[in-house]
Design a protein around this nucleic acid. Structure first.
Lengths: 341, 341
DNA sequence: GTTAGCACTCAATTGAGAAGAGTGCTAATG
DNA sequence: CATTAGCACTCTTCTCAATTGAGTGCTAAC
C-alpha cells in the first residue's frame, strides 16, 4: 500500500512523463506548485517507489520513468478520467451530424474522429452480424451454377455472398425453399438461425423437396457467419509522431502489425465489456510491447455489438483516452439504436 | 541526343543507385565487367551528363545521383522490363488459386501480392460499377420510412444503399415500380440506366402511378453511382524500409497521404490506359515529390475497369515493377472475365 | 522526518583530427 | 584527339577525448 505522498509523487511523475516523454527528475517535481518538499525528499520516495517496482531508471544518472507496473497502478488508482473536453464534444457532434447512409459509415467515422482527437491510432471492430436478426433472405441467380445470396438484417445491414448451385438442383425447388425460409426465419436472431434451420425446417423440407440435404448446405453456406469482423483502422501514421518510435525499425514493426487485420482482431478477442486497458507487456503480441491498448465495447440493449480501441505508446494520455472511449462508445450505441427504429 | 556511351553510363549509374541507394562514383562504374574505360573517362562523361541535367551531385566530393530528368530518360529509353521472375509468377498463381468469393477479393489479393513482391506500397482502385450492367434490382423495406435498395450486377457484384421512403407513398406503388424496373432495366449497362429511366420508363410510369416524380427520385438515388471507387492499400509500412525515408518526418508525410483514400484516388485520376510512370515532381502532390508512381489499368473487353499502382521512392526498380504491373493487370483482366461468364 | 551539501555517474554534446571516397584538372600517352 | 595516369583538393564521416549538465545517492545537519 502506497502512502498518500507516494501516490502523489507517482501521479506527478506519470503525468510529467506523459507530457514530456523525458525521464522525470526530482527537482522538476519539487518545483511544482502543489509540492512542498525538497528534491532530496522526493528522491528518497522515488528510490522507494523504484524498489517497489513502480518506477525505472534508464541509467543511473537519469530521472525516473514509470514501469508497466507503475502505469498499471496509475490507471487503476490514480488517474482521473475528467470527462471529454467541450471542444472535442463539438467536433464529435459535427462529425456525426454528417449524413451516414451505411452502418459502416458510423464505424468508419468513429474511427477517424478517434484518431484525430487523440493523435493515436484507432482500431474499430465493426458489429458482428450474429447479434442481429434476419429481415430478408434472397437468392439472385446469375447463371446456371451461381447465384448471390442476399441477407438483410433488421438493422438494415446487408450481407451478400456468392453461392454455387450444385449440379441438377431445380431452380424451382430453390425458390420454394427461399420462400419457406422467409416465412420461418424472419425475426430469428442469427445466433439461433442455424439451429432453427435444422430443427424446424429440415424435416418439413424433406417432404416437399428433392435432395434437400444439398440445398440445406447451400443455405447454411450462405447464412454462415462472416469469418472476420471488419476492422477499421485510422491514424496509423500517428505512431510516427511519438518520440519513442522515432526509430524507423521500431515503427515499422508496429505498422506491420497494423496492416494485418487478422492480427488486429485477435488483439481484441479477449476484450470483455466495459473499458479495458492493456499496458505494455500485458499485450501478448510482442511487436506492441511498448504500446498500450485501451478498448471499449459498444452495446445495444445490453448486448455487445463491437469494440472501439486506441493504440498508443505506454506513455499515453490514459485519462483523456478513457473518457473519450467511454463517451464515444455510448454515442455509437445511441446512433445504432436510432438506426434500429 | 546522348551518345551510346553516355546512355550506357547513365544506365549503369541508375541501376547502381537503385540497388545501393548510395551516390555512384566513377571508379565503381569503371570496375564493371562490361565497361572498359578508366575512371577518368567516366568522370568526363559524368560531368557532361550533369551539365545536361541527367545527373546530380549531393556535394562536390560525392558520386552522382540520377536527377528526375535522368530517371525519366532511363524509363523512356533505357530500361528493359525483362519480364516477371518465375518465382514471382508462381507466387501470384498460388495467391490467386485461393477461393475468392467476392469481386473485391480479387482486387484485395492483387494489392497484397503486389506489395509483397515489390516491397513497395501498392494502391489498387476497384472497378467502378458503371462499367457493368444491371442484373437485379430490389427494395427491401425495413420499416415505414426506410428501405434498402439492393442492386446486383451481371458480374455478381452487389451494391446496397439505404433509401428513405417519402411520406405518403404507397408501398404498393413502389412494388409495381420495382417490377417494372426489373422488366425494363435488366441488362442495361449502368452507364445508360439513368437515361433509360427517364426516356422509356418515366412516361409509362406516370400513367399508372401517383406522385411518380418522387418515386423516380428514390430510384435515382438508389441507382446513383457510388461516389468514390474503393481504394485498396497494401504495404504502406514498406515505405519505412526505404533508406530515403529513414527520417521519420518524411515518412510521416507520405503515410499521412496514404491514409486519405480520397487523395489517393485523385492521384490516379489522370491515369490513361496502359502503363504510366510519374517520377518525383511529376506528381502534383507535394508530399510524394520524392516518390515515383507507376500505374496500369486493367480492362475487360477493351474497357478500362480500374487501376493498379505501385508507389515507391524515385529510386525504384522500374523494370521489375513495370513488368509486374503489366503482367498482373492482364491477370486480373483474365480473372474478371472468368467471373463474367 | 526533512533537507542542504557534495561527490559521483553517465549520457549527450562538442571539437579536432584522421580517414576515405570522389572529384576536377593537367599533362602525358598511344 | 580521345583516353588516361597522377595529384591536389573538397567534403563527409568516423573516432576519440574532453567537457558539460542533469540527476542521483549518501551523509550529516536541522
Amino acid at each position: 500500500m502506497l502512502s498518500e505522498r507516494q501516490k502523489m509523487i507517482l501521479t506527478a511523475i506519470v503525468d510529467d512523463y506523459i507530457r514530456s516523454a523525458e525521464p522525470v527528475g526530482s527537482r522538476s517535481i519539487s518545483k511544482r506548485a502543489d509540492v512542498s518538499f525538497s528534491p532530496a525528499t522526493i528522491r528518497n520516495e522515488m528510490a522507494d517507489l523504484e524498489e517497489l517496482g513502480y518506477l525505472e531508471q534508464p541509467h543511473t544518472s537519469a530521472g525516473r520513468v514509470p514501469s508497466n507496473k507503475g502505469y498499471r497502478y496509475y490507471v487503476d488508482h490514480l488517474v482521473t478520467p475528467g470527462g471529454v473536453q467541450e471542444e472535442d464534444v463539438r467536433r464529435i457532434r459535427s462529425f456525426f451530424a454528417e449524413k451516414m447512409t451505411h452502418w459502416e459509415d458510423v464505424i468508419g467515422h468513429a474511427s477517424t474522429i478517434l484518431s484525430q482527437l487523440t493523435n493515436y491510432t484507432s482500431i474499430v471492430l465493426g458489429p458482428e452480424m450474429f447479434t442481429t436478426s434476419l429481415k430478408h433472405f434472397q437468392l439472385v441467380q446469375l447463371n446456371e451454377h451461381s447465384a448471390v445470396a442476399i441477407i438483410v438484417t433488421n438493422t438494415g445491414h446487408v450481407e451478400h455472398r456468392p453461392v454455387t448451385i450444385p449440379e441438377g438442383i431445380e431452380i424451382h425447388d430453390l425458390e420454394k425453399m427461399v420462400r419457406m425460409l422467409n416465412d420461418k426465419l424472419i425475426g430469428v436472431p442469427f445466433i439461433r438461425v442455424k439451429s432453427v434451420l435444422h430443427s424446424e425446417i429440415a424435416s418439413e423440407l424433406a417432404r416437399y423437396v428433392d435432395r434437400c440435404e444439398e440445398i440445406l448446405n447451400v443455405l447454411e453456406q450462405s447464412l454462415a457467419d462472416q469469418k472476420d469482423p471488419r476492422v477499421y483502422l485510422s491514424g496509423a501514421a500517428n505512431m510516427l509522431s511519438q518520440p519513442e518510435f522515432k526509430d524507423v525499425d521500431k515503427a515499422k514493426n508496429i505498422l506491420d502489425v497494423l496492416e494485418e487485420t487478422t492480427k488486429l482482431s485477435q488483439l481484441f478477442s479477449s476484450a470483455p465489456g466495459g473499458i479495458q486497458v492493456k499496458i505494455g507487456t500485458e499485450n501478448t503480441m510482442e511487436a506492441i510491447n511498448q504500446c498500450s491498448l485501451i478498448t471499449a465495447t459498444y452495446t445495444l440493449d445490453g448486448q455487445s455489438l463491437g469494440t472501439i480501441g486506441i493504440l498508443g505508446p505506454t506513455r499515453m494520455e490514459y485519462g483523456k483516452v478513457i473518457s473519450l472511449l467511454d463517451y464515444l462508445s455510448q454515442d455509437i450505441a445511441v446512433l445504432m439504436s436510432r438506426w434500429y427504429k
